Simulated assay, not measured.
Amino acid sequence: MTIAALSPAEARVAIDAGARLIDIRWVDEHARERIPGAVNLPLERVGDLPADGRPIVFHCKSGMRTSANAAQLCAAAGDAPVYILGGGIDGWRKAGQPTIADRSQPLEIMRQVQITAGTLVLAGVLLGLFAAPGFFGLSAFVGAGLMFAGVTGWCGMANLLRIMPWNRRSPA
């Protein structure tokens, strides 16, 4: 199913005319940076969207999540006209539209996973080369964990990072 994509300028006009802007990103992503007036309703909860007949503009970070889940978004919107913000919040920002950024919020969990996994793989390789070959197993373990996360949708590292003290702040 395909949903019409609006440019940031077209989306601004639609929002000013009464369309609802729904951010389907995770709560931590929305807390770190958001479009003014956007309502955060993560993709896994988009079925809770109240129907009021007004047009809906869905957005994510880059537009890929919204495009990939078009059928689910259309179903959640009911009979309301549905649009996607082309390029997501990244495109919105590049077009010079305003965002609210709160850099005091923790980095998004997926960025934390990428940083942690990259650090562990690099450490495993360097330790394997310069200390003991057994450390190559660390890189293999992290790689296997990332493959498992990709196949199952469950990421142990993300779950572990989510409960770390720096991630316990309440979202804005």
Results as ranks from 00 to 15, higher is better:
A172Q: 10
L43S: 09
K94E: 07
Y83E: 00
R20K: 12
G153N: 06
V39D: 11
L146Y: 13
V125G: 07
I35H: 03
M1A: 15
G88Q: 04
E10G: 05
A75S: 07
D23C: 05
S139P: 09
A70V: 07
D79E: 14
P133C: 06
H30E: 04
G18T: 13
G128P: 07
L6P: 00
A31Y: 03
W26Y: 11
T119D: 04
A70N: 03
G78C: 13
R169L: 15
F130T: 13
A158E: 12
S7Y: 06
I15P: 03
A5R: 01
L127H: 11
A77Y: 02
T119I: 10
G78T: 12
A4F: 01
A68R: 09
L127Q: 06
R111N: 04
M1S: 14
R45K: 14
A140G: 11
D52V: 12
E44D: 12
S62F: 02
N40I: 11
M110G: 09
M147T: 15
R12A: 13
S170C: 04
L73R: 06
H30Y: 12
A131V: 15
D48E: 15
N69I: 05
A158Y: 10
T152W: 00
G150T: 10
L127N: 07
K61I: 02
N167M: 06
A17V: 13
R65S: 13
T119P: 04
A71L: 14
I35G: 01
R169V: 14
A19C: 11
T116I: 12
K61Q: 08
E108Q: 14
R93S: 02
S139M: 09
A158S: 15
R12C: 06
W154V: 08
G87A: 14
H59S: 03
L73K: 05
D102Y: 08
R32W: 00
L129D: 08
E33R: 02
Q112F: 00
V142I: 15
D16W: 10
D102N: 14
M164K: 00
F141M: 13
R111D: 02
W154G: 02
V142D: 07
A95F: 02
P8V: 01
G145W: 04
R20C: 03
A101E: 14
A31D: 05
I3N: 08
Q72I: 14
Q72M: 13
P8W: 00
A31L: 01
A38S: 10
T99Y: 00
F135Y: 13
A95M: 05
P133L: 07
